[in-house]
C-alpha cells in the first residue's frame, strides 16, 4: 500500500506517494534531502530529530510522515533568513553551545519552541525544557547559557522569531 502525503516543509508545498511506514524524519532526510535533522537513537530518547509540526517541537523519528499530512513542518534549515541566523542559532554559536554538533539541530528546534512558550525561563526551566535532548559532548553548560542568551535577544527583538 502507498499513501499520498501533502504537507508544507519550510514554507514549500510538498506532495509524495509513500509507504505508510515512512517516518517523518525519513521523508525529510531521504525524500527531501533535508539532512540537517539528525537521527541519534531512532528510539524516541535523544531529540536529535526534533522538528516543528504546526509550531510544536516533536521527535520526527516517532511520527509517521502520513501523520504530518496537511501540517506545516519547520526544520533547522527553515530557521535562518537567508544569511542571517535565527537568534537561537546565533546564541549557540556565540556561547559555544556545541562541540561535534550532532545534537545541535534538535537542541535549537526544542529551544525555539521552549522560548515561544516561556520567553523568560529560569535556568531550572531551561534544563527541564531540554529534558528530551541528549548531548554527549558539551556537558550542557554552554547549551543552557546559549538558551538564556537567546531568550534575552528574543525578548528585545521578538519579531526575529515570528517566521519560525
Amino acid at each position: 500500500m502507498s499513501v499520498s502525503v501533502a504537507l508544507e516543509v519550510n514554507g514549500r508545498a510538498v506532495s509524495l506517494e509513500l509507504d505508510p511506514r515512512t517516518l517523518l524524519v525519513e521523508l525529510l532526510r531521504r525524500e527531501l534531502r533535508l539532512t540537517g535533522t539528525h537521527v541519534g537513537c531512532d528510539t524516541s530518547q535523544c531529540g536529535a530529530c526534533v522538528v516543528h509540526v504546526d509550531g510544536r517541537a516533536v521527535k520526527s523519528c516517532t511520527m509517521l510522515a502520513v501523520q504530518a499530512a496537511g501540517a506545516k513542518v519547520t526544520t533547522i534549515e527553515g530557521l535562518a533568513q537567508g544569511e542571517q541566523l535565527h537568534p537561537v542559532q546565533a546564541a549557540f554559536r556565540n556561547c559555544h553551545g556545541l562541540q561535534c554538533g550532532y545534537c545541535t539541530p534538535g537542541m535549537i528546534m526544542t529551544t525555539v519552541d521552549l522560548l515561544r512558550r516561556n520567553p523568560n525561563p529560569t535556568e531550572h526551566e531551561i534544563r527541564e525544557g531540554l529534558e528530551g535532548n541528549i548531548c554527549r559532548c558539551t556537558g550542557y553548560q554552554n547549551i543552557v547559557r546559549a538558551v538564556a542568551e537567546a531568550a534575552v535577544t528574543l525578548r528585545e527583538a521578538p519579531a526575529a522569531s515570528a517566521s519560525a
Binding site: 526534533v50 516533536v58 535532548n133
Partner: peptide
C-alpha cells in the same frame, strides 16, 4: 510526563 517533545504528541 517524559519530556516536552513526548508531551507534544
Amino acid at each position: 510526563i517524559g519530556d516536552p517533545l513526548v508531551r507534544n504528541r
